Amino acid sequence: MFFNQSTQDYYENLPRTDDFDSLSDLKRYVPLPDDWVVGVADVVGSTHEIARGRYKVVNMVGAAVISAQINAAQGAALPFVFGGDGAGFAVWPTQRRAAERALDSVRRWARKEFEIELRVAMVSVADVRAAGRDVRVARYAPSKGVDYAMFSGGGLAWAEAQMKAGHMGVDEDTAVEDTPDLTGLSCRWSNVKSERGAILSLVVEPQEDVPEACFAKIAEAVLEASQTEPRAMHPVPRVGPEARFPPPGMTIEARVRQGGPVAWKLGKLLVENMLIWALMKSRGVGNFDPTAYRAEVAENADFRKFDDGLKMTLDCDAETQARIEKVLRKAKSAGLVRYGLHAQSEAMMTCFVPSATESNHMHFVDGAAGGYAQAAARL
């Protein structure tokens, strides 16, 4: 099937795979066209926010970047990855201006609502390649309802490093008062307690100049070490998370909603969540089956990803953690990788639900007490 590489169809037409292990194979990844544009975002001072007990807010801001981009693209498929205290994505050239506006509006919203500073930047794939890196993507479908982008080539990591160093960014348009469209963004599920010992957040990155094929073998060994049970240490139970009332993130979600004072939005959310809670406790209404929906939440959860490295949130026993660390210590001693681990008692989810009646709801999983941000700080 022929399609223009400079349009959204390029990513939409890429094949999907439901085999996460296969994504350590570089042959699974396809280079993005030169005129596509990479976007990155990162919460400034996330470690300080964790110390203040605001990691759920940090996660919400990171997921807001993705939500704003999906809505700016009017639901068109685009590659993105959630990183806990930030996010990365790519868009086709005609979408660049809308993507920049969405990034800028999320930055100003985070500052206004939460007093959180968000770094944001965009750069063309051609410029990434001129710097000696690449941007390649694959599509991982954990279920029939959703798929998530995986990235390789080092381009996303390079763009983030350049942004943090102050070499690139997106100008702030102070003359514009628009707020980001965060429709579908929520954080209503209760935290999920570990059943095996600890929720382990893991970040693994290749050392500078380590060949991608070499890192791929290490990632494959880490995945093999983590697969001591059929669900690969999935942190969300097969039956899905618990629905409690009131939900823990309701005050945060009120600041996501547009229109009216926070108190009014909070009251409206209270009523909505009471109805949702009652529905989840029921046997279902019409075609909606709450038991099936909760199971879908578990199936759709994004708890493992490749984004120029390997990130995983696992419900891990001590024996499995020791196996994983053994692989990583050996690779580190050989000068091949750097890694960070952070253990906590619970996992949390931040969600993007385009439709309450379809199976395309996305759930970004992270450790509840610092997760990826704390693991990355220990690199």
Score class of each variant (00 low, 15 high):
A68Q: 05
G240P: 05
R329W: 14
E117M: 06
R108A: 10
G370L: 06
E115D: 14
Y11F: 14
G249I: 01
E272D: 13
R129M: 04
L310T: 01
D302M: 06
V239P: 00
G84S: 00
G335S: 11
G62W: 00
V58T: 12
E319W: 01
G132M: 00
E113Y: 02
G145T: 10
V58L: 02
S359E: 04
R323T: 09
A219C: 03
A130F: 03
Q95K: 01
G184H: 02
K330R: 14
T228E: 08
T174Q: 12
H342D: 01
Q207F: 06
A138D: 07
R257V: 09
P142W: 14
P206Y: 15
A263E: 15
G155S: 00
N4P: 08
G132A: 07
D127P: 02
F3Q: 11
R54L: 03
V256P: 07
L266N: 01
K112E: 15
G75R: 04
E358V: 05
G88S: 13
E272H: 12
M233I: 02
Q69T: 07
Y29Q: 13
T179V: 07
A343M: 10
L341D: 08
V256A: 03
Y11I: 04
R196S: 05
S6I: 04
A232E: 02
G197H: 06
P206K: 06
M362H: 09
K326F: 10
N300W: 14
F2W: 14
H363Y: 00
E242F: 10
F89W: 06
H48V: 14
Q8S: 15
V81Y: 01
E220V: 07
L269I: 14
L223R: 05
H234A: 13
G169P: 01
D178M: 08
T350V: 04
